[in-house]
Design a protein around this nucleic acid. Structure first.
Lengths: 383, 383
DNA sequence: CTGTTAGCGCGTTCAC
DNA sequence: GTGAACGCGCTAACAG
């Protein structure tokens, strides 16, 4: 062992200074068991005087509880995840838990490493937005489960994986947005941020297959788009779906391509912020005014959308609520670990009172929060 | 002690399964000391078979190193801090460290609580963006120092406090932005996001005093604005500085007020994203087109700024770099703790090669990263 | 009510 | 090379 940690008096030192045994000091400082008022005061005074601070690490080793939640997201610098983490932190800190945040940049390897780290650091639970698209690549999640660490999926489901989860009703939201465009009279609607395919799809099934092999949330949005088209009897033109790399510049290229079509789209539905900015750039460079020559609806509302010219109609995701719900669900799960025998709900902190869909499939709970279409001025009848 | 943790084999179990002593298992698994190849293989096999995972918490208690960095920011849902945390995470994870992120919402009490939690969880270092405006309210920072935990200030300095820090050259950036407006011919420039004062300032010194009593970064930006005015011999009109609550709606109100002045400003410099959106809203509602009737420069570049109509001229802050540098500085400090005897710099990981100011005042290092003025199309000559 | 004693899981020294 | 033994700081039974 190295040199004595520069300072930090131990509980033994406090006990000595107070003239009592460790246990008594531990009891007062730990806030459990019985201890005489007199002794308590002495201990408290000694602790105060020495500047004692309980070592939570040591405490965690003994109790098996770290009061830390692991949060793994794609990218903390993405405002969406920033909002989610804020929501998680809010309810977590109110319960005395902190968040260990790790970004994976959508790389499965990083996600696996992140979960391993969290498991090794013995976090009490994990909230993660997985990059996994199928049950085959979820060994790391199983690892966490095996270690008895509660897990809740955030923003993205994984087909074939039964786990607690909190997501947005992406499909319904995308459908509503598309329908809004259809209602305005559009028949050729561009979809920006389709699945990453090497070859341009020819048939609807190519798209559906690719969507299923893709990130759940993105796939759902594409399905919602297809749903709306079906309902209104509009034909799907694969040329109007951007496919390939998910970057702003690629979105720009795809929109530019669509604009050059014989019958270009008269409206665009963008399912991501970068897809939207890329589209906006392309529209500007192509000399296509909004909404007179092209209507636009974006995803992920931001304060910027309202000050655009024209103000943009957007699908607003309840980021904070997403994070809060996930944390509540996880915390409830953690509480359950200790007192598993009985049911759940003790505090009425925040039940299920919204119109959000909540389904219980056997053991696990899945919450589907509603996204809201914020209508502004970027949608108009086609030229 | 409760029931045996559902699973997680201990190092003893691995040793038993491998038929060796704990120490031998510990040596192989811990990667230190000597151990015969044969024994090593047996241990490794046993560990693999049992699905052994070292308990980092227990390890941390012994070693005194948690491989965790504490990061306390104002609000993780703010894209600026999201970017900063991403930068921190990048360099931290490359070194095997993780980030415990806590938001304070600019409340000093929350900040104090956050630092206490981090100290108690024995993080190896803390990066924080403090809400403290003077040395008088930094007892919590002293606490961390007393516990031997390295600290680096991020984005904000605290007058009178000597600590490592990484910040932006706010004053110079604000000055450059204002000068840009002056160069375009503006003489009445509105400053949005001034200090929170109850009473409207009458003289320059009221403003300077308030700035000094305010968040360092905000104060510096105001000083930069004043610098530019001075240099060009322009008079300061206190009416053109928004003061009060720092919210988008208040920025809106203040700009609306300025617009109603006898000689309204012909340009606006907004030092925060919310200040900018509030200003933009006010300008739109006031029927003031940009840049023909009012020029605008904002702070905190975002992908949105480029797709606005017109594209906005902005002051871009190197958020990622800010986080990276802070993490590097902190990590270097942490390395130094163990091998304090000798000087510093061992790895040439990333020295000081930019034109960013780096000053060493005695013991501590302060880095000042340059912000960049991104010129687009929201600045024009006054009407 | 209180002190003793035995863990928790792991790091590390030190004889054998 | 290896294993016994002790330490890290704290929790928690258990007698007294």
């Amino acid at each position: 062992m190295g040199k004595a940690r520069s300072s930090s008096p131990t509980i033994s030192e406090v006990a000595a200074a107070a003239g009592v045994g460790r246990a008594t000091a531990a009891r007062t400082l730990g806030g459990y068991g019985y201890v005489s008022t007199e002794a308590r005061l002495r201990v408290l005074a000694a602790a105060e005087g020495l500047g004692y601070r309980a070592n939570q690490l040591a405490r965690s080793v003994s109790t098996g509880i770290s009061h830390t939640l692991g949060v793994v997201v794609a990218d903390i610098s993405n405002p969406f995840f920033g909002g989610v983490v804020r929501g998680v932190s809010e309810v977590a800190s109110a319960r005395g838990f902190d968040a260990l945040v790790i970004s994976t940049y959508e790389h499965l390897e990083d996600e696996i490493a992140a979960v391993n780290v969290l498991v090794d650091k013995r976090v009490d639970g994990i909230i993660l937005s997985s990059a996994a698209c199928d049950a085959a690549s979820t060994a790391h999640l199983q690892l966490a489960r095996d270690q008895g660490i509660p897990l809740v999926l955030l923003d993205r489901l994984i087909p074939g994986v039964e786990l607690d989860a909190v997501v947005i009703d992406n499909r319904a939201a995308a459908r509503a947005a598309t329908e809004q465009l259809v209602a305005a009279g559009h028949t050729r609607i561009g979809f920006v941020w389709g699945p990453p395919m090497v070859e341009r799809p020819r048939f609807r099934r190519d798209l559906v297959d690719a969507a299923a092999r893709n990130l759940w949330s993105d796939g759902e949005r594409l399905m919602g788009y297809l749903d709306a088209l079906d309902d209104s009897g509009l034909p799907l033109d694969p040329e109007l779906v951007s496919v390939g790399e998910k970057t702003e510049s690629h979105a720009y290229d795809e929109v530019t391509r669509m604009l050059a079509l014989d019958t270009p789209p008269t409206a665009f539905f963008c399912t991501e912020t970068d897809a939207l900015t890329g589209t906006l750039h392309a529209l500007r460079d192509g000399g296509v005014p909004i909404p007179s020559r092209a209507s636009v609806i974006g995803f992920d509302d931001s304060s910027w959308a309202a000050v655009m010219e024209p103000p943009l109609t957007m699908v607003e995701q309840p980021m904070l609520e997403l994070g809060r719900r996930a944390a509540e669900l996880l915390l409830r799960r953690i509480d359950g670990e200790d007192a598993d025998p009985e049911g759940s709900g003790s505090n009425e902190s925040s039940g299920s009172n919204e119109s959000s869909g909540s389904s219980r499939h056997g053991e696990y709970t899945q919450l589907e929060l509603p996204a809201r279409l914020v209508e502004r001025a970027s949608v108009a009848a086609p030229h």
